[in-house]
Design a protein around this nucleic acid. Structure first.
Length: 573
DNA sequence: GCCGTTTTCGGCCCGACTGTTTTCAGTCG
């Protein structure tokens, strides 16, 4: 997850593209792709892994890739890649990002027409030159032009919090169509990844027509990309997100859902296991190879069961060790929304929130919560209406009163700024009066890693600080995390008993999934808070839970699943 | 290039779609 991890991952992906263009063995190509993905999803800094001499313990990294990683860490280059790059102009592999253009076609375009980038491809297509190449025709040429056009308009992956509500709205309408026996989201949105490229929906029915009619008739559909009996694709409204709906026979629903939920790596592992058992898994079911007899597929449980595995929650289907744990019957019991007893991070009209403490408390009560904490901003965060010390006392009385009136425990808290020197924005005698203190960095984000780490760790050492809020400061798709030595922060969390926040606000989701996993593996405690600024924001808890689940977190590791008294005792210390 | 509860060598996930190809290669998910 560090910058270095991503740099090397990128190089490996580019090596894979180049090898593919050169028609190298697909297995070799895939080995680099797999290695690239392994580094991408590696939570720890690869440098640290290398220092321990454990590169080859990373799945997909063998002798050759480990050596190249070490070379990069040592010299900042990978000579093999440099040499490979010289054999083809850099833009040729970009051509493969256009639909219809794979390695064969990209190479053909380069060799026969001298095309070295996407602009060149567009010019040649408009000039009708592409259709003259062998195996290509007018239709493909047209599709290439459309693909280039779509790519220009298309936005990058969008935050889960933007896409999931749209997906749920589509799901609701399709579910009401005649003859639908079951349906579900699939793909990365079901796995609750923090960003989503497109929406996948699987529908079980014997009569596809009403479902497809319902889909293309949706008011939010901006364009119908394709409409078939088993697959239709549409673009949704302003966001421009593509939504693919697949219709399957109910007998295949589980197999299709499993298949289209992914991840790809997870599914590849399952199918490898199936082959070793003389089985074949596809989107229609599980089949015995010997006699083609179908042994399952109606439910996901049947698919996993055929491999003697328990059902694996979608959020952890990432080929990151979940299959091995499932084999041993040791899957974690992931925290769920139902475990949450309260929300410990929210704002009110006292700082930059839109609703009063009472409104928030009533909304929380309606969600079935037993307690909340009101955590308005501290004094120095003026642009967010930070609460001064004098106001804080009045604020505390209001909050106290609200709890009594609404009938749930309302903790008086604060989201206190961590100032650049690591001190907190209220003096200790003020902090002492609060039930709960979240410390967050909001200003001076561009410190060096050393400075930022010292700042945060210093704050964590203040005994009044209970929770480190949105620890890395990243904004999904907008702002990278600030430069922080997360290993040191996790160590400090354990040493000082500071809880790490999983901020559920969709633009944040911070800590993010891989960091949560890293912290969990080292025994850190978490709080999942919405950072709500309005009552309807309380529902974003769902995204925080998804992120926690992706990090393999169990309910006992999340303080806002604890009963009130246990939470109070903990905060007391 | 990776990997091992059938293997340290010989495998490596699976099927649909589509356009142009007259028998299927290439691309995609």
């Amino acid at each position: 997850m560090s910058a270095t991890n991503l740099e090397i991952a990128r190089i490996f992906a580019q090596i894979a593209d180049l090898l593919e263009l050169k028609q190298e063995s697909t297995f070799r190509v895939n080995a680099y792709r797999k290695g690239s993905r392994a580094l991408e999803s590696l939570a720890e800094d690869v440098q640290a892994v290398a220092a321990r001499g454990e590169l080859r313990k990373i799945g997909g990294i063998g002798a050759s890739l480990a050596e190249k990683i070490e070379e990069y860490l040592r010299t900042g280059r990978i000579e093999y890649f440099d040499e490979l790059s010289k054999t083809l102009p850099p833009g040729v592999s970009d051509l493969m990002t256009i639909p219809e253009v794979g390695p064969k076609t990209a190479l053909l375009l380069y060799e026969r027409l001298g095309i070295t980038d996407i602009d060149g491809l567009e010019r040649a297509s408009r000039a009708g030159k592409v259709r003259e190449l062998p195996r290509l025709g007018a239709k493909i040429e047209q599709n290439i032009l459309q693909g280039i056009e779509r790519r220009r308009q298309q936005t990058a992956r969008q935050p889960l919090g933007i896409v999931l509500p749209q997906a749920q709205a589509v799901l609701e309408v399709l579910g009401a169509a005649a003859g639908v026996e079951a349906l579900s989201l699939a793909g990365s949105i079901r796995r609750m990844r923090d960003t989503i490229a497109d929406i996948d929906i699987v529908v079980a029915t014997r009569a596809p027509d009403p479902v497809m009619e319902a889909l293309v008739g949706l008011p939010q559909v901006a364009r119908v990309l394709s409409r078939g009996a088993t697959l239709s694709s549409v673009l949704l409204g302003v966001s421009g997100v593509q939504c693919d709906v697949r219709v399957v026979d109910p007998a295949s629903f589980g197999a299709a859902l499993q298949y289209f939920t992914g991840s790809k790596d997870h599914n590849v592992r399952l199918r490898e296991m199936a082959v070793r058992r003389g089985l074949r898994i596809n989107e229609y079911g599980v089949f015995r190879v010997a006699d083609e007899v179908r042994v399952g597929g109606k439910t996901e449980e049947e698919v996993y069961g055929a491999l003697d595995l328990p059902w694996i929650p979608p959020e952890i289907r990432e080929a990151q060790g979940e299959i091995e744990l499932a084999q041993r019957g040791e899957l974690p019991t992931l925290v769920s929304l139902a475990d949450v007893r309260g929300d410990l991070h929210m704002h009110t009209t006292w700082s930059d929130g839109d609703d009063t403490a009472e409104t928030m408390a009533r909304a929380a009560k309606a969600r079935g919560y037993e307690y909340i904490a009101i955590t308005d901003h501290s004094r120095s965060l003026r642009f967010a209406g930070g609460v001064g010390i004098d106001d804080l006392h009045a604020h505390a009385r209001v909050v106290q009163d609200v709890g009594d009136r609404v009938g749930l425990r309302v903790l008086m808290g604060s989201e206190v700024d961590i100032l650049p020197d690591g001190s907190l924005d209220y003096p200790d005698e003020v902090l002492r009066t609060l039930d709960l203190v979240i410390g967050s960095v909001h200003t001076r984000l561009r410190m060096s890693q050393e400075e930022m780490t010292r700042r945060v760790v210093t704050a964590m050492q203040n005994p009044h600080l209970d929770i480190l809020g949105h620890p890395t400061g990243r904004l999904v798709g907008q702002r990278p995390p600030f430069d922080l030595d997360l290993d040191a922060v996790i160590d400090a969390a354990r040493a000082t008993g500071t809880v790490l926040e999983i901020n559920a606000y969709p633009e944040r989701l911070d800590l993010r999934d891989a960091h949560v996993r890293l912290a969990r593996d080292r025994g850190a405690l978490f709080e999942i808070g919405t950072d709500a600024h309005r009552r309807d924001h309380l529902r974003v808890m769902e995204y925080g839970i998804g992120t926690a689940r992706r990090g393999w977190v169990e309910a006992p590791g999340v303080i806002n699943t604890w009963p009130l008294q246990r939470l109070l005792d903990f905060l007391e210390d």
